[in-house]
Design a protein around this nucleic acid. Structure first.
Lengths: 207, 207
DNA sequence: CAAGATACGGAACCGTGGTTCCGTTTGTCA
DNA sequence: TGACAAACGGAACCACGGTTCCGTATCTTG
């Protein structure tokens, strides 16, 4: 039944079958780092070729570590969730008791800010295949728990619309991420997503 | 200078060089209709092959009427803008005088509702190439004018945040469209974009 | 109704990019 | 250090889909 102890911080591997050879462990990390860069630049359209090149490795090596492109993307998504979960926990523990709304808003603004610095890669969260997403699922759940706590605290303090729910968070993040990524087809100017976020937060808050 | 009389309702063609042959005119329309259906189903990933098949025509015919996929997509986008411009004008003229906010909200809700019924196709507005977008540009401007009027009326009546601007509309629509398109990677359930829209409208409105 | 221009059909072409395969290299362990 | 398994490199393979080409069919005009 419950098997929540899997997927700690880094490995995300069963680690049962004999440990990786030293060079393999090093290379796996290189692949992930390279992938992070390449996907950050080209999003889902990134090419495996580029990942290999950027990592200074051959295609074969990349595929030795990740079954296919989806699996690699999934690992990156997992890392995002991992980071966000940590940050959510931080806001929850550090700020929430004194200033519930502030903690929620702080987390949301930090999360969107991070997203803005890395839009293409983060958009993959929404375009990834179910199989790819699977490797990130349990980490995502942990993030959701912290989010839930932040929201509940703000609502208990009467500072947030009672009908806002954790389930609205992905919708919101997805919407903002999309607005960030898209540019004006004529001028190429980025959209003012911060403004949109202000409107939404204003709509959620209760004074 | 001003050359606003171009692009009426249907043709969007110079119509100077001898008119199309009867069958060609008919087929052009068929291509567009088929494209609307196929792009509605598969979005930007739609295949020219399918468009031709659905229209009951050969590939050659499709390419005779539209330089490339971009041009075809551009024509569809133009039609969307055309329709939206008409609807915006309607709300502006019919409702705005008595109830400025109501007109704005009504238009936004109608526009998003339409979008929801045709998400994949409408998302192309944001993913289309600049060349493809060009054919829709003047129609877009007309839409923007009506939108501007709706907003100004609501603001003059003190019913809307003074810092909301027409330029925020594409951002909003893009964001909502994205939320509509994306589904939960696990359950496949659609996101509750209506909720998000409520929050935003609540944030924009001034009572 | 004949001639010529216009339009059509769809098979073939070609670039792109994910994935595989296998000969070579490298780490590990006794 | 020698032997074997593990890991690597990257060329080759293959599917997919946009685009082109050209022989054929259809409309228009005199």
């Amino acid at each position: 039944m419950a098997r929540t102890e899997t997927s700690r911080l880094e490995p995300s591997q069963d680690a049962v079958e004999r440990p990786l050879r030293a060079d393999a462990r090093r290379n796996r990390e290189r692949v992930i780092e390279a992938a992070a860069e390449v996907f950050a630049e080209h999003g889902a359209g990134a090419q495996m070729d580029d990942v290999a090149k950027r990592a200074g490795l051959g295609m074969g090596t990349v595929y030795r570590h990740f079954k296919d492109k989806d699996a690699l993307a999934g690992e990156l998504v997992r890392r995002h969730f991992e980071l966000l979960a940590q940050r959510a926990q931080h806001w929850r523990e550090t700020v929430s008791p004194d200033d519930p709304w502030g903690a929620f808003e702080g987390f949301v603004r930090e999360a969107t800010e991070r997203m803005a610095g890395d839009v293409a890669q983060q958009r993959m969260i929404w375009t990834i295949s179910p199989e790819g997403f699977a490797v990130a699922a349990s980490t995502r759940d942990r993030l959701a728990e912290h989010g839930q706590a932040l929201i509940a605290a703000a609502q208990d303090a009467g500072q947030m619309r009672a009908d806002f729910s954790v389930a609205d968070m992905p919708t919101l993040m997805c919407a903002l991420g999309s607005a960030m990524q898209v540019v004006d087809p004529e001028t190429g100017a980025p959209r003012d997503w911060q403004r949109l976020l202000d409107f939404v937060l204003d709509g959620i808050r209760r004074h």
